[in-house]
Amino acid sequence: MSWRKVDKINVYGYTAALQAFVTYLMGSGLAAEEVVSTLKEFGRKIADALYDEFMSHVKVAPHTVTDLERMLNDFLNFIVGQIFDDISSERSDQRIVVRCRLRECKLCLDLESPSPDIPMCTMFAGAVERICEKIAKNLGMSRAKCDEVKCRAAGGDACEFVLELTP
């Protein structure tokens, strides 16, 4: 899949709108966890809208953990033209856990989260969660959960996402 063919817009407009929206939610009285769940839900809706186009680039849905790691890199590339610096996976009968780290994340470029409890790339985590929910059965699983557990915009040294697939 080629990032060059993706229709693009300046990331600064996106990050400024994201920060403005998060600040608006907090100003409306939402607690940090409610802001995070709102962003997660947005990400899931975005994934529903982009799923067919993204999967047409991936061509074959993943059937192994190696395929899954490749798909996660493809998805990040599809959104911002980057790939993860590190991806590691553990698989057992009961679950698959994938950890992805990105040091210079464009999704939160120059952002400072208004709360250390609000990772600013949560929408991306929501989108990953929804996409993996849709392909989980290929890997013998049925449920997916993805969270951004560290974010540079919230004081982390990198952005880190943890994806967990369970039966």
Binding site: K8, N10, V11, Y14, F78, L109
Partner: peptide, 17 residues
């Protein structure tokens, strides 16, 4: 100069708002 992001991702974010 401009750093870029998938425009559909942003458009659907604006739709969600």
């Amino acid at each position: 100069v401009a750093k870029k992001i998938n425009a559909d991702f942003v458009r659907h974010f604006l739709r969600c708002i």
